Amino acid sequence: MDRTRSARLRRVLVAAVAVVVGTFVLIPGSAAAAGTGTITGYGGKCVDVSGAGTANGTKVQLWTCNGTAAQNWTVGTDGTIRALGKCLDVSAGSTADGAKVQLWDCNGTGAQQWVANAARDIVNPQANKCLDATGVSSADGTALQIWTCGGGANQKWTVPGGGTGGGGGGGFVVSEAQFNQMFPNRNSFYTYAGLTDAMKKYPAFATTGSDTVKRQEAAAFLANVSHETGGLVYINEINTANYPHYCDTSQPYGCPAGQAAYYGRGPIQLSWNFNYKAAGDALGVNLLNNPNLVATNSSISWQTGLWYWMTGTGGAGTTSHNAMVNSQGFGVTIRAINSIECNGANPAQVQSRVNSYNQFVGLLGVPAGGNLYC
């Protein structure tokens, strides 16, 4: 929020940028199962390990469903898809159309990360491409590959348990597993349940427009949040020397919680007495007198972030929500949240936000769209 931002956050979060920039990496190991069984696709055929082989590089293909171990897949909550003790893998970690999909030792790389979304795509976020039956064929032995997502029947899959990996509590387009992948080092205060509970206050958030737009908005919100908090690590503003500066004594209600009580807290780092007053009034919570609720109640904390996302315009002249649902681009959300970074004033900070957004839309299996910078 333009008046809730200052150099303190930008200085504090420079050291934390490394936490959130780049492709997430998961530690190899046994994955908790989101579902186990067959993955069916084009022509009603099953995803199959050729010859039930377990050698690295074994072809993964379509085959008539037969109930064997070669067709028994575990979709892990860590983003892996496993069979015969090995992981579904993009050959050589390629991001090119036509890169073959194979079986390989699980290693936690982006080549082995998959997201099954509500559109029934299985997306490799590293490449931002879909699992695809080569040649639009359903013949036994058809090799699987990755290809630019096009919505064709040869890219549609049904995963074990009917899960999609693309939605969560209250219909949120980001599942809890995806949320955890986005924020592997997050503070336990920032819970997924807190976020989905907060969304009840703003039911239009990430539910407006096409499925792509919903995911883009969710990614944009979480990318800005990631930047503001160093990957959901920080709850309170770190630079305590700034704390007394956020009391605007010209306001008729003053600063009843104390001169130094209105420092940055929560996912959008709510600051200043007038913002605590406005957010509290909107949310039905007395934040002016009890500002620390933003640092002690996960749902309220998330609510303040959504409050600004849905209502604050900053230097953009529109809300971040409206910018995303009207396809104005991620860059407009940066201008709404912290326009002081824009127009070349702090390109490193803008790039940090864009990096997180690109990562998150990749994880959610949608394009980033245009106008990413401000």
Rank of each mutant, 00 (worst) to 15 (best):
N239H: 05
G264I: 06
R8A: 15
F360D: 05
G76F: 05
P267I: 07
N107D: 13
R10N: 02
T40L: 04
Q145G: 00
N180H: 08
G35W: 13
E237H: 03
G168S: 08
L144G: 06
A206F: 07
G79R: 14
K156D: 04
G44C: 10
Y243E: 09
F183C: 11
A34R: 00
I81T: 12
A241L: 09
F205E: 00
V233M: 05
G231T: 06
A96Y: 14
N224R: 05
T23S: 08
A119F: 01
Y253Q: 13
W114V: 00
A260K: 09
N273V: 03
Y192S: 02
V225P: 02
P291Q: 12
S91D: 01
R353Y: 11
Q102R: 14
N326C: 11
D2T: 12
F360I: 10
L195T: 13
A15D: 10
F183D: 04
M182V: 14
G41D: 07
G41W: 09
N358E: 08
F24N: 09
G161V: 10
P256K: 10
V213C: 03
L88E: 00
Q71C: 14
R11Q: 04
G29M: 05
G231L: 12
W309A: 03
T319P: 05
A83W: 11
G93E: 06
G35F: 01
V20D: 01
G141H: 09
T158H: 04
N180F: 03
L232T: 03
D48F: 06
T164D: 02
K59A: 04
K45S: 02
T95P: 03
E237L: 03
L88G: 02
A118D: 15
